[in-house]
Design a protein around this nucleic acid. Sequence first.
DNA 1: AATGAATGAGGGTTCATTCAT
DNA 2: TATGAATGAACCCTCATTCAT
Lengths: 209, 209, 209, 209
Amino acid sequence: MRSRESAALSRTRRARREDLIAAAIQVISQDGYGAASLERIAREAGTSKGNALYHFSSKEELYQAVATTLFETGAAYMAERLRAAGTPAERLRTYLESNLRFITLNAAHVGATQRILQNSTTVQVIEVEDAAAPLRRLLQSGQDSGEFGAFDPEITALSIRAAIDMAAFLFLRHPDLDVEHYISETVALFLRAVQPAPAPSASASASAP
Amino acid sequence: MRSRESAALSRTRRARREDLIAAAIQVISQDGYGAASLERIAREAGTSKGNALYHFSSKEELYQAVATTLFETGAAYMAERLRAAGTPAERLRTYLESNLRFITLNAAHVGATQRILQNSTTVQVIEVEDAAAPLRRLLQSGQDSGEFGAFDPEITALSIRAAIDMAAFLFLRHPDLDVEHYISETVALFLRAVQPAPAPSASASASAP
Amino acid sequence: MRSRESAALSRTRRARREDLIAAAIQVISQDGYGAASLERIAREAGTSKGNALYHFSSKEELYQAVATTLFETGAAYMAERLRAAGTPAERLRTYLESNLRFITLNAAHVGATQRILQNSTTVQVIEVEDAAAPLRRLLQSGQDSGEFGAFDPEITALSIRAAIDMAAFLFLRHPDLDVEHYISETVALFLRAVQPAPAPSASASASAP
Amino acid sequence: MRSRESAALSRTRRARREDLIAAAIQVISQDGYGAASLERIAREAGTSKGNALYHFSSKEELYQAVATTLFETGAAYMAERLRAAGTPAERLRTYLESNLRFITLNAAHVGATQRILQNSTTVQVIEVEDAAAPLRRLLQSGQDSGEFGAFDPEITALSIRAAIDMAAFLFLRHPDLDVEHYISETVALFLRAVQPAPAPSASASASAP
DNA sequence: AATGAATGAGGGTTCATTCAT
DNA sequence: TATGAATGAACCCTCATTCAT
């Protein structure tokens, strides 16, 4: 299994570690967090339990690597896209689109990391507590500029994050889901939610010439 | 030790089971799913591991009971409140309010059940797959009546459910949170999100050349 | 093995613990500290590894129990004999005799405990550091009364303790050794060693009438 | 890392072996026998586990080398000093002094070797069983010449060896100990112990009715 | 001469489950 | 009903050893 030693000589340390990280993601996604034993993961990676612990000094460290690599790639992916700013609404759109598209492309990795963070007591990610903080600030800036309506930015940020965090499992359960439609619908949903309340009924016709 | 149970001899089977269910919820909420061993749960319930397996033929069955009792009480709670219908918007408000308020009152139970469903392979709940189905139908009826705007009811239902499902852990992590404020903000958020798009404002067409 | 459930009903917790302690002593004495795995010890005690850890929460705790029971019985044995005091010389004789006789009767237990204390990092015994302190004080009192000669009481105490501590392994290696002869010779050896230097040659005849 | 060995390329096989032997002694002395893994020892020697097993075909063989080198240097050290003989008392003094002084100079090596011999089943040293035999013969020759008193030479030899064998750990635990004082006191102690009993003093007979 | 990679056996520990009482 | 005792499987981890390079 595993493409029979495709390039046996290039088996460098980094490659093995990546194999094991990929295997951990695969096993957790497929069989669940509870079934993800080192034995099972190592076998999935085409190696032995002992060797897995040669490359990672503990199972927790392997899991930490799963989380860390996700956040590294995720941060790179999003930073690139969020650089091009704009109005708060545009930035909210970009935030949602890039988040959801990244999750689409890495659903198993994201899902596995969520399970790890939920179940492990030692694996930590920087700023785990305020994952919604950047979003909250974004919403506040939109309110300051008058572009967004009046709502509790913390609660709204949490609701948006909930929709994002749920997406990985949704994509995993429904691999045939129309991703672009899903993304654009979700974006539209929350853009409507943050819009200012329409002016009292009369104003609509009033503002029209 | 523990031999002065004479007065409590009338403990019925059901009461013991409820003790164990409560203990399982307590241990999972407090120490995490991974730390919830039968030994630990039984001790929390004031009994022995052997006796726990006398009342529940397996740990999975105990967990199943945790999930089942939650859905029974939850269904009763919500059915009562959803019976008094009204316009789709009113029903959406009622749906969100009753759901969130129920979660407020049973945060530990809800959170524990979510962990169980995430981690157990055998525990099942009726209609787990289409937990969003009633909500989707509610949204569709609102669209049919023209009260709601045009959006994908499935995706919207999923986003709303995500916000609801996240609430238990939020309440557990922040026990001092202003629940009524949280509920009313969340209701308002999603009511805005399902409203029909306002008639194109003058400025929108004005800004187009 | 192990007298086939001689009195299966009296299998109380304490009895099992004593079985396991005895088995640990036996395995360490016979096969060495390094070969003493929990599996091996449990099998020797006629039970399983899992059950051994049911009665002792860890292997270290079992080893701690080996050491503790030894020091308890040893202290009881010696306290009884040392109570009847006398001159320092008599007390030194009693100290040596009771120590060595106790070791004779518990050679395997003593040897196993020494191995445990040498190799374990966590097992501790009260006053492990100054095992020679009571002996040193005994010697000092003999010097104060003029009954003993001039020597460094600390160094002498250490040498006497060395002879005592070596005895367990000696008895284990030579089970047919004449214990009473060994004890009386050792007592005589150290009694000579602590005697005051004989008066300068002339004085011997001088003190004689 | 560790690639600037170019200048040290002339490292001969023997030098590497000595490095590893020294490292084994260091690790056993510092971290204990149980913590002395090949990995740990090799790292201490500045090389790799694989290379350690290139120089010693097994860990046991390395430990055997630790023991063998100790006995070789020890024998050379003592043979030189014991050659210049004299009266039995002088030879006993020399025996004790040279032994203890050698141990002073090689406390870690001696201590490590004792641990190895205690714990390993395969490492053997020539004449381990009768380590006390030369001493016993020495004592017997003193008795034959009338210079020593009447005592069991075997038992006395064992007690003296016990004091010697304990010294390594004493020196390791108390590096600031006054070695010369310790040696002279120990010599004096055992010289007194082997002396013939003084002629019965007048007071002794006087006290008898 | 030396290294990193890999293995497999064995160790201690946890835990759901069984069973006699 | 309830308990303590016991089991066996599975888990993570350590380690001496092998091997290709």
